[in-house]
Design a binder for these strands. Structure first.
Lengths: 168, 168
DNA sequence: AATATCTTTCAATAAATATTGAAAGTTTGA
DNA sequence: TCAAACTTTCAATATTTATTGAAAGATATT
């Protein structure tokens, strides 16, 4: 396979995977493009390579920066902004985990905690089943949360630090 | 909080979480409804409780069955079909992991393997960066795949079997 | 074999999401 | 201060995804 074709396929696949996991297709594609670019790219270059509009490119790049996956670069003597993606996959994975934990897991945990306080008749099967399900999900979600917390602090921890090096 | 309100909030939250993770909101809501129902429900009951159409209820329930999260029940003397959700959260998590692995992770792994075979000039930074990124992602994805594989076989394995009981 | 009961399908429609592009905003330097 | 170079915004539009509901398909009952 030629490089040009491989790049194309990689970008498409990354976009598809993103959309299957609730991440905007274009955002995933821009990320893919930057991932495989040795140099930082300008908005113009992203627009051209992916055939997207200026507005879309601008918003998508901003989102990627908010996700902590891309950073702006400035070059002396130039007005244009350049965009560069973090290339270490483990750092990327940690970053994504961190953001999704914060944006999605934590709000759910908060609600589950409240729902566990529901009042009702202990003899009512409706009540019993509700309470059991919510409690069980809360337990699992808390464990996932704690596990992620540990993972995210892995670098600071000799034990997991060494385990996670195996994944690198 | 009253049970009725709590149920409503739970169903909404589950639907929202699902849609953030690429799972149809209605599917997640139907799943939530069945999760907190002590008894199996009919299509009619699902339609009424969630205010959705017959077609939607039918397709959604079929999808949930395909995900291995819900099963049909038949009752003697009745023509209607009843639907019942698996309640053990660890089993649910395993089931979801299994399906997403099969539907999304495995196809991506296959492609990454092919992309690693890309031909090009070893001196070309474009080629180098592409190859490094693809290889690194492939490594991480393979490790995730293997880890999931182990998890999915956990019940058959005394060591992880006992570890995972901690999560229940 | 006709009818009642229940399930499935799928083209049409609606709703949610993503994208465009032109105008407004900002920054730099002549 | 002006204007060129670049970035940002957002209402309008397009695309994608989900939902409806009526008709067709099953299956059991008389």
């Amino acid at each position: 396979m030629e490089l040009a074709e491989a790049k194309q396929k990689f970008i498409e696949a990354w976009g598809k995977l993103g959309s299957e996991w609730g991440i905007n297709r274009t955002m995933a594609q821009v990320h893919a493009l930057l991932l495989i670019s040795p140099e930082a790219l300008t908005t113009e270059q992203v627009m051209e390579q992916l055939q997207i509009s200026r507005g879309n490119a601008n918003m998508t790049l901003r989102d990627l920066i908010n996700w902590g996956l891309v950073e702006k670069q400035h070059r002396s003597g130039e007005r244009k902004e350049y965009f560069f993606a973090e290339k270490d996959v483990w750092t990327i994975a940690r970053q994504v985990a961190k953001e999704r934990k914060r944006r999605e897991l934590e709000p759910v945990l908060k609600l589950l905690g409240q729902l566990q306080e529901v009042q009702g008749d202990e003899q009512d099967p409706e009540y019993q089943t509700f309470k059991t399900s919510v409690t069980d999900i809360n337990k699992l979600a808390s464990n996932v949360d704690k596990t992620l917390e540990t993972m995210l602090k892995a670098e600071e921890n000799w034990f997991f630090g060494s385990i996670f090096k195996l994944f690198k």
